[in-house]
Design a protein around this nucleic acid. Structure first.
Length: 418
RNA sequence: GGAGGGCUCGCAUAGUGGUCGAGUGCGGCGGUCUUGAAAACCGCUAGGGGUGCAAGCUCCUCAAGGGUUCGAAUCCCUUGCCCUCCGCCA
């Protein structure tokens, strides 16, 4: 939720943000109107409540003769209060709806426009070339006995896969490497629940535009998380944080319905319904948010560099940001089989938007105020394995293990086909 | 799955229809005293909303939501969470 104070003081800034995102700036005026209507309703109801309280008190001290008259008046006021409160509730619900309709205000410098309007900030490493016909990760992975999509489909349906042998070991190695890096940098490792209650899902903003992406267990009214950002953000919901920053690295499975992506990335394990991920999450003072964002991005770059993967960093355009994000950087690694860049990690600065909704505050000079939250992928395991296999493949179908990963694979330097 | 018990101001508790947004203890903060510290003593110690330049005034919040009543922390209903016992599974 955006800051209503900012909205009142500088509605043009919010309108500009809407325009940059390709969203309707008229929603801003709808919100302003709803805000005013609510305040009017609150004032009316407050006045009546105050009067009612006074008359109710008077009932006690009234003499037997005046009592019936006072009681009469109290009853009338009681009814009036009830009506005013109903109006207030209505106005509050309308405000909430209008409030939720507006995504976070984008930061200065975010490129306006849609998915293709991103700006490339830098490229790390050269696009590799091969003196043999490259194979895609599924061919290589199948050859290594590392990936089994056929049985994945048999057991669970399309977009599911088994990681077997080296595939399973690679996952554990990647996760261990990521967690080790996170711990070294002061992040608290967390194993988070993958099932969460509606409030957690809602509070993190995933039931808005992303609602179709989310698995829901209707019988139990629980949701399967699409990223551990959800439990990590909800972790401190409703709390006053005495110490900032707080940094967590959550490891969990992630579930995505991939509704509307039929036919996209259907081969292999680039886009599946279930994968594991190590996700960074930080709670910081809003003044430090941009600095922290750079820090998370740096963590991602180090990790990809350790895997010896060439990648580029893009500044995602306003229209392609999530509801909660004010700015987002993606790291895209080179995918040799398709000769294109593929998003491997992503880090978002949600400023105080998410924290406001989740009620996460800290003590400042002028009382309590929402903190800033940021999230970033350290390692999305499935995709990372896919890219790793492709980039480090050799002509004979074997795969070179990057140096940093070897300690986590019992010193293994090369994975050989079976 | 069955049977009970609970949820109050950071923590522990008091409070069973009206001056209770709420007492006490602990903790925390500030002060007096002290060479310093401790002890003792004194004071302060929720959050949110409305209105106002401000001081202030005012409303809401005793797990959440509904209900009864002129009036609810207190009575009723629903939900959530926690705990105990039994059963079951690991």
């Amino acid at each position: 939720m955006i800051d209503l104070k900012l909205l009142r003081e500088d509605p043009d800034r919010v309108r500009a943000s809407q325009t940059a995102r390709g969203d309707d700036p008229a929603l801003v005026d709808a919100l302003l109107a709803a805000d005013e209507a609510r305040r009017a309703a609150v004032t009316r109801a407050d006045k009546l409540r105050a009067e009612q309280k006074a008359v109710s008190q008077a009932v006690r001290s009234a003499s037997p003769e005046e009592r019936p008259a006072v009681l009469e008046k109290a009853k009338a006021l009681s009814a009036a209060v009830k009506a005013a409160e109903a109006e207030q509730a209505e106005a509050e619900a309308a405000l909430r709806a209008a409030h939720l309709a507006i995504p976070n205000v984008v930061l200065d410098g975010v490129p306006p426009g849609g998915e293709s309007d991103f700006v490339v900030l830098e490229q790390v490493g050269d696009v590799p070339s091969y003196d043999f016909a490259v194979r895609d990760h599924l061919d290589i992975g199948t050859g290594l006995g590392a990936i089994d999509v056929e049985r994945g489909a048999k057991v669970s349906g399309s977009r599911f896969a088994f990681l077997t042998g080296w595939g399973a070991l690679l996952e554990l190695a990647l996760v261990n490497l990521a967690i080790a890096q996170a711990v070294e940098n002061g992040f608290t490792p967390v194993i988070a629940p993958a099932l969460v209650r509606p409030e957690a899902m809602e509070g993190t903003g995933f039931l808005g535009a992303h609602a179709e992406e989310v698995y829901r267990l209707e019988r139990d009214d629980l949701y399967l998380v699409g990223t551990s950002e959800v439990p990590l953000a909800a972790f401190h919901s409703g709390e006053v944080l005495e110490e900032l920053p707080l940094r967590y690295a959550g490891f969990s499975s992630c579930f995505r319905r991939e509704a509307g992506s039929h036919g996209k990335d259907t081969r292999g394990i680039i886009r599946v319904h279930q994968f594991d991920k190590v996700e960074m999450f930080a709670y910081v003072d809003p003044a430090d948010a941009e600095k922290e964002h750079a820090r998370l991005l740096a963590m991602e770059k180090v990790f990809l560099s350790l895997l010896e993967l060439p990648f580029r960093v893009i500044d995602v355009a306003a229209g392609d940001l999530g509801t909660s994000a004010a700015r987002k950087y993606d790291c895209e690694a080179w995918l040799p089989s398709q000769e294109r860049w593929l998003e491997l990690t992503s880090t978002s600065n949600c400023t105080d938007f998410q924290a406001r909704r989740l009620g996460i505050r800290s003590r400042g000079a002028n009382g309590l105020s929402p903190v800033a939250t940021l999230n970033g992928t350290l390692c999305a395991v499935g995709r990372t394995i896919a890219v790793l296999l492709e980039v480090h493949q050799r002509a004979d179908g074997s795969v070179r293990v990057p140096m940093a990963l070897r300690p986590y694979l019992a010193g293994r330097e090369v994975l050989l086909p079976q």
